[in-house]
């Protein structure tokens, strides 16, 4: 019963070319090429400009001539100190909040709802706004001035939502049987948490930690007015100190002739981030797979 309104059944052996389908496929491939090309361009450019200056002494010398010459040792030290403060403050907050959200709020509750929504918003706050807040609260209101402490605390606020999201995910991935088994054995809640849930949830925590470190290392705007610009070797956490990203910004924008060292520093930063990235995948793959096979 051929129907004039539906196109006739095609012969099975004749291949019709579906032009719209072809056109979209070509477009999608083009997009993929474009994106790949951009990344290769950026990374290739970085390697080409940055690699010639890269040497061991670049990592172990102090900057000279406003950073045009010399190395980045004090910058690396300040970066590590800021990172250390950031993690020392955000990790306990992270674990506590994540445990609360994942283990104690199964049935909802006002506080959990509030915390979740707040963290959603916090995750979207622009970094320059964190900078304004850090400047007003830590540097001026609490009197820390332009210091590594102030910068680290500002970053801690910033990475907290990332850490919590991932850690909570880790706790949620713990099968309910473990909790039931622990309860059946008469373990107390704190014991269940420390002895059983925390070890199983660790991969999530570690992945979050690494993502957070990546975000903190990449950050510039939030630190401009909290940790400041000083490129000297810091003697305490109350000294001002610049991170790698601020060093790059300062050399590229404010120091004529500083591009070359800016590129080299950028290469160092990217390499660091790349290593962190690979580490994340490695840990995620290894531990998460093991988690699955054990179940």
């Amino acid at each position: 019963m051929p129907d004039p309104s539906v196109s006739p059944l095609p012969s099975l052996s004749e291949h019709r070319v579906d032009w719209p389908d072809r056109a979209v496929a070509s477009l999608v491939w083009l997009v993929a090429l474009l994106v790949t090309g951009s990344l290769l361009w950026i990374v290739g450019d970085l390697a080409r400009h940055g690699a010639p200056e890269l040497s061991w002494s670049f990592l172990t010398d102090s900057p000279r001539d406003a950073g045009r010459a010399g190395g980045i040792l004090p910058v690396v030290v300040s970066t590590l100190m800021i990172l250390g403060i950031c993690l020392a403050v955000s990790l306990p907050m992270d674990v506590g909040t994540a445990i609360f959200l994942a283990e104690f709020t199964r049935t909802g509750g006002l506080l959990a709802h509030f915390v979740r929504r707040s963290l959603d918003v916090l995750a979207g706050v622009p970094s320059i706004v964190f900078g304004l807040f850090g400047n007003a609260f830590f540097s001026i209101y609490l009197g820390m001035g332009f210091s590594i402490l102030s910068g680290g605390l500002t970053l801690a606020c910033m990475v907290l939502p990332i850490l919590i999201r991932s850690t909570e995910e880790g706790f949620r991935s713990v099968p309910d049987e473990y909790r039931k088994a622990a309860a059946a054995l008469g373990l107390s809640q704190p014991a269940t948490l420390w002895q059983i849930l925390l070890p199983v949830a660790t991969p999530g925590l570690v992945v979050g930690l690494i993502l957070g470190v990546g975000r903190a290392l990449a950050e510039t705007a939030a630190l401009l007015f909290t940790s400041g610009y000083v490129a000297r070797m810091p003697s305490s956490v109350l000294d001002s100190g610049r991170t790698l990203s601020i060093h790059i910004y300062d050399l590229a924008m404010n120091v004529p002739g500083g591009e070359s060292n800016a590129y080299t520093t950028a290469l160092v930063l990217i390499t660091l981030l790349l290593m962190i990235n690979v580490l994340t995948f490695w840990i995620a793959d290894r531990w998460l797979h093991r988690g699955i096979t054990h179940r």
């Binding site: 506590g96 909040t97 445990i99 609360f100 963290l119 706050v125 807040f133």
Partner: peptide, 19 residues
């Protein structure tokens, strides 16, 4: 845990307030 979560949740309010 409630206290820590409360602090984490209040950061955004603190930011808004200081701004």
């Amino acid at each position: 845990l409630r206290g820590l979560a409360m602090v984490a949740g209040c950061i955004i309010l603190l930011i808004g307030a200081f701004l």
